[in-house]
Nucleic acid binder design. Structure first.
Lengths: 217, 217
DNA sequence: TTATAATGCAAGTACATACTTACGCAAGTG
DNA sequence: CACTTGCGTAAGTATGTACTTGCATTATAA
C-alpha cells in the first residue's frame, strides 16, 4: 500500500511503456538468454505489469525480435569513408577502429545476445550476420581505398577485417562479462596495439616517417 | 516395440552410460544453452533413460559442471615452448597458432558454452577465464622468448595475445554457428594472415630474408 | 460529460520440465 | 545360489512460466 506501482513508473524517467519494455527486455535477454529471461522479470524491470508486455508485443518471441531489431537499428555503420581517409594511415585507422569499437561496446548487449542465441533463434542470427557482413565490407573497402592511395600493401583484407572485428568484439564482451578487468583491456590500449600492428605490417613506407600526411586526400 | 532402447545403447559404440551422457550433455548445452537444454533431450541423445542421468549426476547443474570440467581437462595448453622456438619466426608462430586453433576448434563447444553461460553460471565462466588466462600467459611468454632471442621487436604482447586468441575463437565459433561459410574463413587463410601480419609488424629484420633460421634455438 | 485508449490487478489455464519413488530385469561376482 | 550393481519403465510431484480473461482505474480528447 505504501509504494504504489505508479511510483516506479514515474521513476523510470516516464518514458512510455513500450520503450521501457524494450530496454528491459534487451538487458534481461542478454543477461539470462532467451530461455532464461522471464516475461515476469522483464515486466518488473520495466516497471510495468506483465500483461502490458503481452498487450504491446503479443509474445515473448516477438518481443525478442522487436528488441533486437531496434537495437540493431541504433547501431550505425559508417556509410562514408571520407573522414577516415585524411591524415596519416595511423590516424585514419585509429579513428576508424575507435569509432567501431565505440559502436560495438555500446551495443555489445545485442551482439552477445545474437551470438549466444544464434542457434535457437535463426532469424536473430541472420540480422546479426547481416550486420557483421556489412561491417566487414566497410573495413575491406577502407583498406582497398588505402591501397589505391598507395598507403598500404596488398593483403588478405577480408581476413584482416575479421581479425579486427573479432578482437574488438571479444574485448567488448569480455569486459561486460567478467568482473575482473582482463589484463587492463582498455579501449586505448587495444586500438593502439591493433593500429600499430597493422600500420607496421602494411604501411608502404616506414611507419615512423609520416610521409603520407599530405598525399592522402 | 521394434527398436528397443538397447539397440541405441549398443549403437553408441558401447561406451558406458556415464561417458555417453557427458558427451550428449555437452552438445545439448552448447546448442540450446543451459536453460534450453532438457534432461530428457540429453538422455535421449545419450541413448539412456532420463533416470539414469540423475542417478549418475544428481542434478542438471551438476551435470553441466561435470561436462564442462571434463571438456576443459581435455583441452591441452602447450606447456613447453621449445617446439615453437626452432626455425623461422614465421614457422614457429605458424605452428604455435595452428596448434592453438586446433584446440580451440576442437573444444569450441565448451568455449561457446562458457561464454554464453558466463552470466548465469559464474563457476563455469571462472573455469573458462582461468583457461584463457593461462593460454594468454603462454602466448606472452612465447613472444618474450622471441624477443630475448632478438627475433621480434618490443610490443604490447598481452594485447597481441588477446587479439590472436579472440580472432581464432571468433572464427571457430562463427564456423560452428553459421550455416554459410563466413567468407571462406579457413584455418589456413586465417593463420596465414595472422602470422604474416605479426611477422611483418614485429620481425626485427626484413621478413623476406630468413636470417634467423640458425640463430633461433 | 462521455467515450476511448492505456494500464493495473487478480485469477486462471496449459504445459514443459527438473526431479523422485518404486519396482523389475539382467549380468556379473562372491 | 544370493547379492550387488547398473539400468529400464512407469508414474507421479512440484514448480516455473508463457499467455489469457475479465474487470477496475485513470487520463485524455471530443
Amino acid at each position: 500500500m505504501d509504494d504504489t506501482p505508479q511510483s516506479s513508473r514515474v521513476s523510470s524517467t516516464d518514458q512510455d511503456a513500450h520503450a521501457r519494455i524494450l530496454r528491459a527486455a534487451l538487458t534481461e535477454f542478454t543477461q539470462r538468454g532467451y530461455k532464461g529471461a522471464s516475461t515476469r522479470g522483464i515486466a518488473e524491470r520495466a516497471g510495468v505489469n506483465e500483461v502490458t508486455l503481452f498487450r504491446h508485443f503479443g509474445s515473448k518471441l516477438d518481443l525478442l525480435r522487436a528488441a533486437v531489431e531496434q537495437a540493431l537499428m541504433q547501431m550505425k555503420i559508417p556509410q562514408d569513408l571520407e573522414p577516415y581517409l585524411h591524415g596519416t594511415l595511423e590516424q585514419g585507422l585509429s579513428q576508424f577502429i575507435s569509432d567501431y569499437l565505440l559502436q560495438v561496446t555500446a551495443q555489445s548487449d545485442i551482439l552477445m545476445l545474437g551470438f549466444s542465441e544464434a542457434f535457437s533463434q535463426p532469424e536473430i542470427s541472420d540480422l546479426l550476420r547481416e550486420f557483421m557482413w556489412k561491417m566487414r565490407g566497410m573495413i575491406v573497402r577502407y583498406f582497398e581505398a588505402m591501397r589505391e592511395r598507395g598507403a598500404i600493401k596488398e593483403g588478405d583484407y577480408p581476413i584482416l577485417a575479421h581479425i579486427i572485428m573479432t578482437s574488438l568484439h571479444g574485448a567488448a564482451s569480455m569486459r561486460k562479462r567478467t568482473p575482473i578487468e582482463m589484463a587492463q583491456l582498455s579501449d586505448e590500449r587495444l586500438t593502439g596495439c591493433l593500429v600499430k600492428t597493422i600500420v607496421d605490417a602494411y604501411a608502404r613506407y616506414a611507419p615512423d616517417s609520416p610521409i603520407h600526411d599530405t598525399q592522402l586526400t
